[in-house]
Design a protein around this nucleic acid. Structure first.
Lengths: 205, 205
DNA sequence: TCACGATTGGCACGCAGTGCCACCTATGGC
DNA sequence: GCCATAGGTGGCACTGCGTGCCAATCGTGA
């Protein structure tokens, strides 16, 4: 019994239980989100979430490893899509340009649903307890993307190869964050445009 | 009564109490560090730290806002020094080069005391509870450095100016982290050299 | 109908952090 | 010397998160 959802080892085998489990998870996240919007993240207790979702506190912890997981869940999903996009870019493309292109799907998705994305962004920066989750997301995306970036960099040996790919990946993610922050602060701006400006300010696209 | 140490509003007025308070804080941090090395961060309880330092649990929380603070303390200090170095660089220097130079002091200091720095780095990456602290440090450094970086960038207007400075600062910090990570993983490497490689891989120095 | 596994909920922990209050101690005025 | 005051200290109780354990329950198949 894990809290990771449908077993990742057998992706094709979605049993009836897995579907039910997924539905329950979605419902809990929906209830929790409403409470977060009303009372904030810290101001909402697990007991309240469990009650709103119609389950006991103990059962809640069988579906989610913790309260943070409710927020983290949404963030980590996009990482896979970025990695897929990056892998699909032509091999001739530079790492920086490929990363910019790989971010496009996430950025567009975010801009299409500002009513969902903006409150989330605000909450992530407002609530101190959630700052760890942001780093966690960043870390996982970094882990996912770094090997793909390595392939697009001139060959190096030893620690030099590692550090370059990590630096490029981390910088790109920093640009993404900067763009998202600016977009959150300045309503009416275009997120893809901000991302272009951010990444162009660091290295030529 | 705060937990921020000597009152920041009157930096010159170090009363006798402030000195005593500082000494106690140092001693608690020393005791805590020994326990962290032995049992890990999560494996050490506040009660153990308080007992080792010869005070009650309640009193501990009057000196530190929480257990994380014991680790965070050491990290945030360096931020001021980086900001000072950056402000002291010639105005003609590019933002990227100035940032590289501003990191030098911290990087050299870290390399001079690997026996202290390495376990800290390892702990920061190993303990999930400390990941939030890392982000917190990063965030504060970012806040400190961004305005200084803005001055070294070509003029922009509105959100464009903000996002560029934030992106450049964030990228530089990402390079620093990448270099520190590689240095932690590969004993015997030169941290300043790794930082050069990291930053050069993103933008020309 | 029975047996089996999975889910659930309740209970009791341990740990972090906080508010409140009583105690002690150092300092200064009388 | 005596007392008043302020600040440090410790104890107690409380909320909240997260976990281990166990009994009750539900669904499924034999």
């Amino acid at each position: 019994m894990t809290t990771d959802g449908p077993s990742a080892t057998t992706p094709g085998a979605m049993t009836l239980r897995d579907h039910a489990r997924g539905a329950v998870r979605d419902e809990v996240m929906r209830c929790a989100w409403l409470l977060f919007l009303e009372h904030g993240f810290e101001g909402t207790t697990v007991d309240q979430i469990a009650e709103a979702a119609g389950m006991s506190r103990r059962t809640f912890f069988r579906y989610f490893a913790g309260k943070e997981q409710l927020v983290l869940e949404r963030l980590v999903e996009s990482g896979r899509s970025i990695a897929d996009e990056l892998a699909a870019r032509p091999a001739s493309e530079s790492a920086w340009s490929a990363l910019r292109a790989a971010f496009q799907a996430v950025v567009v998705l975010q801009e299409q649903h500002p009513d969902q994305a903006r409150p989330l962004m605000v909450m992530l920066r407002t609530e101190p307890a959630l700052r760890g989750s942001v780093l966690e997301r960043r870390r996982r995306w970094h882990e996912l993307l770094t090997p793909l970036v390595t392939a697009r960099l001139p060959r190096g040996r030893g620690a030099a190869a590692d550090v370059r790919a990590a630096a490029v990946t981390g910088s790109a993610l920093a640009c993404l964050e900067a763009a998202q922050d600016a977009w959150t602060d300045h309503p009416g701006t275009s997120l893809p445009r901000l991302l272009d400006q951010a990444m162009a300010a660091v290295a030529p696209l």
